[in-house]
Design a protein around this nucleic acid. Structure first.
Lengths: 335, 335
DNA sequence: AGCATTTATGGTATCGATGTCATTCGGATC
DNA sequence: GATCCGAATGACATCGATACCATAAATGCT
């Protein structure tokens, strides 16, 4: 309602018998303030319980100390490593993050972006490389560092820190074929033009095609479905789809759900059916058998993205960076 | 660096031939603007790509639209339901949250609070009821709604939405004794004065004492340890501590880790040893056997806290609310 | 001593919006 | 046509800090 705190720079200035600007300099630790003066000002500030008003500071200095982070969702563990590492990394430098959820939808993303931009963040980190035209224009207009993450592109808004979802799925599939699997089915989240699920599916299919194989089936799991209920759906799907020997899941959560439910239904994994995930979240380690998956370096992407934003803001760099952090195929028990 | 967007109210005002204040009113949807004028202004605003500057608005109106949320950690799934439901609930009303992590430490909490207060949030939601003196003073000074969550207290800063950690542990332990367990050991996160781990341990011990039982041992797991490594430590602990028939864990993550590692070591659960958790996160459902635990209504607490903040801000209510959302003992396979 | 620098401080405008109060306008009323 | 009233608009101050430029005091140097 009223976020008014009673003490402002002016009050301190009056109490100390100096001008507000001197107080401002003293408290910000700028040079050119006499040590005595600074000490006295600091003391008065503490005594009065002064808390700087960052809103006023932001308005005048055009620096909010805010970095906007947009991810599809913060629920579930998929993006939490990334968000945490961004937050930790930027926190060290005194930045605060404000998070927006795009809900896997570029129009929603645009709405969220527009809301966040009103707060004039000093930088933007955004998951994905596919945005509406308006979003791209807005990002460009803002004139702040922008880092797209979790994917690669030839045509970034500014900088990019990601990996090739398509390439990872392609290589992973080749490796699975190498291991002897032949009868693949694919389970995926909703696919839209050039989103990650779609790219992964494309990579998978390319590998199949290259080896002269064709898919034994596919199923789409909606976003809001929990691990166990997607697992149920997938159990039904694989028992109904005869002859599948490997279920290729384009995201980790549905792979975990499928593994748990198939095992609870008495299937032997990977003998009756192999299941592989994509992402590697912590939960993949606690199921039996632990999940074979593609490890996405979420924390690393967050860290690098944060570093780029920070370095651009401190003038050490100019943007337009592309970093491919790669991926790691992690063999565990399910394939 | 420069979050400057090129178009301000003034530009629109000039283009439309009206004053800035009229533009402001038009775009905010206030009454007393002629429909024609509004339409024209809206159109110009869109054409010029105007994005309101919330920083300036916040400064003048003393409303930032920001709610500070402080939790021990956002990593892991413990508090994510709560944070998500706060965010969703307040998002509907146009508020944005800024998150701070106290790292389970009240001095750190104070530091985080001081940082967040600089942004002049319109409200504060904070996990826990035990704060430093300075934190409490600051919260009071701010003159905004404050809701403490995840615990109960007789002496809230303002409002509270929680449950009795001690009572839950007490009742749960009684129920376990009723089920036939007698030889308890306790595994806990670090305990500090009146923190949640400590309250849960106290409740547990009270129940034991009341039934004339005494603990067979206790172990503390540091915060930063992952599920599987705490599980290893606990496996060693229970095999070294003879005769324990039920491991009472004061948090969910260590219970899951313990269950997974004990089972992988070939122990039968709950026959060789029962293990119970506290919290109920999604991962508790995917292990075998699924974890018996106390379900904490994290999303409900978040929703209620958000509702209180919102209602206070819209003048429908005056603060000083206490809500006990209770807890639910959830029997599954591990006890 | 005289002058150039550096150090320390202050005055004032400004960031971009909104609160407050004043003013204008159009039409209804008599 | 004069008066009144509410609808529509505007002028101005202000939120709390910082940028920018000016100035005073202290120091260095020849």
């Amino acid at each position: 309602m009223a976020s008014k705190l009673p003490v402002s720079l002016k009050d301190i200035a009056e109490a100390a018998g100096v001008s507000t600007i001197t107080v401002s300099r003293a408290l910000r630790g700028l040079p050119l303030v006499k040590p005595d003066t600074r000490k006295q000002i600091t003391e008065i500030a503490n005594r009065l319980g002064y808390v700087p008003n960052q809103v006023a500071s932001s308005l005048r200095s055009r620096k909010t100390g805010l970095i906007a982070v947009i991810v599809p969702t913060v629920a579930g563990s998929i993006f939490s490593d990334t968000v945490n590492s961004i937050s930790n990394e930027l926190g060290k430098a005194g930045y605060q993050i404000i998070i927006g959820e795009s809900s896997y939808d570029i129009d929603q993303e645009q709405a969220v972006l527009e809301a966040l931009v009103q707060r004039r963040p000093d930088g933007v980190i955004i998951a994905g490389v596919n945005h509406t035209r308006t979003s791209r224009e807005l990002l460009a207009l803002m004139n702040v560092p922008v880092v797209e993450i979790w994917d690669m592109t030839d045509d970034p808004v500014d900088s990019v820190v990601g990996f090739s979802n398509r390439g990872a799925a392609y290589q992973f599939t080749l490796a699975l074929i190498e291991k002897g699997y032949r009868k693949f089915a694919i389970a995926s989240g909703p696919m839209e033009h050039r989103n990650r699920a779609q790219q992964r599916a494309v990579g998978h299919c390319e590998a199949l095609a290259e080896k002269g194989l064709s898919s034994f089936g596919s199923i789409v799991i909606p976003h809001f479905m929990g691990m166990l209920s997607s697992g149920e759906t997938l159990l039904k799907f694989v028992t109904d789809t005869s002859d599948v020997d490997c279920l290729f899941c384009t995201n980790e959560l549905i792979a975990i759900g499928a593994t748990v439910q198939c095992r609870r239904a008495g299937m032997r994994i990977p003998d009756d059916i192999a299941i592989v995930g994509f992402g590697n979240v912590e939960a993949a380690l606690i199921i039996d058998p632990p999940l074979t998956t593609v490890t996405i370096h979420g924390a690393e992407m967050g860290r690098e993205a944060a570093r780029i934003v920070f370095e651009c803001l401190s003038g050490k760099r100019d943007g337009h960076v592309s970093i491919d952090v790669g991926y790691t195929i992690t063999w565990r028990g399910t394939a």
